[in-house]
């Protein structure tokens, strides 16, 4: 599974978790667009992969808080 497919699935999972699912999809897509058109996992450097995963991880934590208040 390439990165885009993986993230698309993730986005759908998060859509189930939060009412703002479309917002999350937009967030992840926009974040990926910052990597010069890269879409396949192989194209990303190890540092970029870490950045993407950690950004998603930290955002989910933030959204859990924003969900609960």
């Amino acid at each position: 599974m390439d990165l885009q497919a993986f993230l698309n699935e993730e986005a759908e999972c998060y859509a189930d978790m939060f009412d703002g699912g479309l917002v999350i999809r937009g967030f992840i897509s926009t974040m990926l667009e910052g990597y010069d058109g890269k879409s396949d996992w192989q194209e990303f450097t190890p540092q970029e992969r870490d950045e993407i995963v950690m950004n998603c991880h930290r955002m989910i934590e933030l959204l859990r808080q924003a969900e609960e208040g």
Partner: peptide, 21 residues
């Protein structure tokens, strides 16, 4: 940068998204 809204004023709140630039 996106952060938590739980901001005490004593420390920078928990950070979520960090823009690559």
């Amino acid at each position: 940068v996106f952060t938590s809204i739980n901001a005490s004023g004593d420390h920078i709140p928990q950070i979520g998204y960090v823009g690559k630039e």
